[in-house]
Design a protein around this nucleic acid. Structure first.
Lengths: 342, 342
DNA sequence: TTCCTCCGTGACAGCGCTGTCACGCGAGGG
DNA sequence: CCCTCGCGTGACAGCGCTGTCACGGAGGAA
């Protein structure tokens, strides 16, 4: 910066003021400084600046994985948003328990970010408390914690809506494919199961353990086995509600293979509305990770700029939509007169 | 840090030495300092440290998107690797041309990272030159630039191998589904097309323009249209080689819908070996983004630690494998006596 | 004219660390 | 017994910025 100052014939103070866009610089000096900076290919050091201002210009995100569609989509809207606010994005990828423990033990994000976005973790109280004294705004994304800013969809309501869609079509035996062991999504997962159960109960249909199967994502055998079990029940289901589109598509594939016509003999409903769902014309419950990412980013920026604002613990709940495509229809006639609605 | 020093009854120098793990600290003092640091919940400020050392402790990655399977997988191995080396990961997401221009104009990564990994961009000479005087090692990933360190698979050879697999099965009319307009992957895309053409030429089969179709990913109609064209040719193909698994799966789905049996009437070969490919039992040409990410990360770390090492412009070429699954088989008999091999 | 104000600018301290150098002390050799 | 050596420690400057304050000069009010 001293070089720029010398070249422009001004002090470093003036260079600093110019480069930060402060208004108390005369246009002519400003032009000179900007030219000098460009000629010398100069960029201010964030490190040095942050040492003085206390702001790092960084936003950290804590994610369990980047493999999942949800993360990619959410970060795709978050990244450009932060950049346009002049912020950098630091990613802390915590794929397993060992990394998780080490993260919460050492909290490497401390002092190295102005805000932290925690994605899709099912944190325990101790971990949440640890984040509380991180000294920066912490925003919970795709999950919610009382008294802390959170951005999420209401998975319970969404799953209940999906279930009601099937109920309204006339289904009475509805299976639920529950994902287990997928790193980082147990929070949503549990809520979706709950929503399914709530909707059934509300409709006066008993929750049947036999109709709920645990699936290991990324293991296609697991889906085939679960479907095999369901199809060999004394009273098999007429519809399958999968907690994730990937699982729904795997189910679709298995069903087509065994020549069970979808949706004539079996309805299939997914959750998420990934591009995958559109390809397979899969009926699904849609959420928008792009919107979630954007809202979370905006909330982060607002909390950074005014840490004492009223929305210090605001909850932003984003909508979901049931999207009927070609894989859901009324059950076969012998199952009872189908009702037409929803 | 002064607080820790006071609490431990030592100087800040000693605290610094202890926390950096330097050996010239007596065990007893080390223990005292570590306890004090833990009690005060102290973490060193990277900003301040980097001001002195000139090292930021950051590795920046430049990516065109995070939606793609490739990026997620590559970063999944890169992230933990960097963390275990005590480095942070900064992501620069450049989804469109405007962001790209602005990135190369302002080079925000300058002075804020110790190395830059450029993923899957097809950079022009000017952009490459701009990165050259960034003052840090720049590693090209999933692409290659002469004289610069690069980590990639040989897409030409891989596509040629895939094509030969189909040729060896006896196919003579092989279509190629070429992806166009997918942000950030044009480099690989072009090389794969080239490999397809090379293998055909080598086998003495003329390259037929009619057999090469451009597909827009994430637009299922585009695949259906392309297949429609291919199936209505005077001499339709007996095999389809898609440059990406996603497109191959879309093709598979369209073919199953139209009751064209795969692989009996039509073979389908993908490229990438995403989890998707395994689900659909799709034959494919496999690459391993995890390995690519890991190699790139290791190369970055080694260039950071010894910038003048011999591998300043090393090219690391990772292997690919043709994985035959259930979607490739010899063509129908009327097409000529199938040869059995490959 | 004199005083005051205000705008644009420069000088300088200091943010929190690290690297260097100097110092004290006990051990070992002459 | 003295000198040297080396280990463990402390003092201090300085990394590249920003924020504060002081200062000079132009312009308006008294």
């Amino acid at each position: 910066m001293a070089d720029v100052a010398e070249r422009a014939g001004v002090s470093t103070s003036t260079v600093s003021r110019t480069l930060r866009g402060l208004s108390t610089v005369s246009p002519e000096v400003r032009a000179r400084v900007e030219r000098a900076a460009r000629e010398l290919n100069f960029a201010v050091s964030r490190q040095a600046a942050s040492l003085v201002t206390g702001k790092t210009g960084n936003v950290a995100v804590l994610v369990p994985t980047l493999d999942a569609w949800f993360m990619g989509a959410a970060l795709s809207s978050l990244g450009p948003l932060l950049r346009s606010a002049g912020m950098e994005l630091s990613v802390y990828l915590i794929p397993d328990m060992a990394e998780r423990i080490s993260f919460f033990d050492r909290l490497p994000a401390r002092r190295n970010a102005d805000a932290l976005l925690v994605f899709s973790f099912d944190l325990n109280d101790k971990e949440t408390a640890r984040l509380d004294d991180l000294g920066m705004p912490v925003i919970y994304v795709s999950q919610h914690v009382d008294g802390r800013p959170s951005v999420y969809v209401d998975d319970v309501a969404a799953a209940a809506a999906g279930t009601r869609h099937l109920l309204n079509l006339g289904h009475r035996r509805i299976a639920f494919l529950h994902t287990v062991g997928a790193s980082g999504f147990s929070f949503s997962s549990n809520e979706r199961l709950l929503g399914y159960q709530q909707a059934l109960t509300e409709a006066g249909i008993p929750v049947d353990e036999d109709l709920m199967a645990g699936i290991h994502t990324r293991d296609k055998r697991s889906t085939a086995e679960a479907l095999g079990n369901l199809l060999s029940l004394r009273e098999p289901p007429t519809a399958v509600f999968a907690e994730q589109d990937e699982v729904a598509v795997a189910a679709l594939w298995t069903l087509r293979r065994t020549r069970i016509p979808v949706p004539e003999r079996m309805s299939v409903l997914g959750f998420d509305d990934q591009p995958l769902a559109d390809w397979f014309d899969l009926s699904t419950v849609a959420q928008s990770p792009k919107d979630i990412g954007r809202e979370a980013g905006e909330l982060a920026l607002s909390l950074i700029n005014e840490p004492d604002a009223a929305d210090r613990c605001r909850h932003i709940v984003l909508p979901t939509y049931v999207i009927p495509r070609s894989t859901t229809a009324p059950p076969p006639a012998e199952e009872g007169e189908p009702r037409v609605s929803g």
